[in-house]
Amino acid sequence: MRVADSTLSQQVVTTLRRCRQEMAELQVQLASGRRFSRPSELPRAAARALMLHNDLDTLERYRASVDYAGSRLAVVEAALGTLTELLQDCLELALAGANGSLTADDRLRLAAEAEQILDGTLELANSSWTGRYLFAGHRTSTPAFERVSLPEGYAFVYQGDQGKLEREVAPGQVALLNLPGDAVFLHPLEAIEELRRGLAANDQQATTQALASLHSALEQCLHHRAALGVRVSHLELRGNRLQDMTHACREALAREEDVDFALAASALRAREIAYQSSLAVGARLLQASLLDHLR
């Protein structure tokens, strides 16, 4: 077969170019640690990797949301804890006040104590977190309760609404982050006020009645705490599960995207050898000429 000189040189150039191209691709892979830098290099793996990236970003968002929900519920939980303590203090006052041997002055002193507890409870009901009132539903910029002074004592007006603060923690699943203030605090506030009034009026009968109200308020509070506890533990489970899923997702992503360094390095070595030998062969082929042997 005739082989034209142009064919020979063309072949040498083509081979060298192919070697160089393959080496450059491997070099990019090794330097970036990624199996592909453009979707067209490995379209199926790239499509799977993009989906996994979506999942991973979504999971990270949900994890952040779970963390946020957790810290927010912790604040609510702490408030309920304090409320329990306050109500227990009140119960002690009420028990003391129900004692028939007390004088009117003693009861007035107890009433003053009850008023302090009342102030504390109101402050608790109006507590805020990052500048937002916790127990006012959606109306987070207005204090949850207002104390109105009436001739016969104090009345409490709930200024919030029943709005639920929700955070999405999984596709379509929300965690409830708040409790409506009126359900949590109105009864305790009124019970404490009832006690205060009874004590201030030196009315043993009323004090005993307030004891019953306080008991039911405490029970309600404990009920809320228990429900909240269930929410928090659910959230923790959700958080753990998200962590597991994130881990699995990262592993899958690494399988799609990451270069097997040992494999790539040995492939590069093989290409290097091919390149060196085609250089050597090319140089010898191109230099040979009959003219060297003619005088």
Binding site: R38, P39, S40, E41, L42, P43, A47, L50, H53
Partner: peptide, 14 residues
């Protein structure tokens, strides 16, 4: 949608 579209584009280019 975009992950799928880019996967499809990748196939097309390949």
């Amino acid at each position: 949608f975009w992950a799928a579209a880019i996967g499809k584009l990748g196939l097309e280019v390949e």
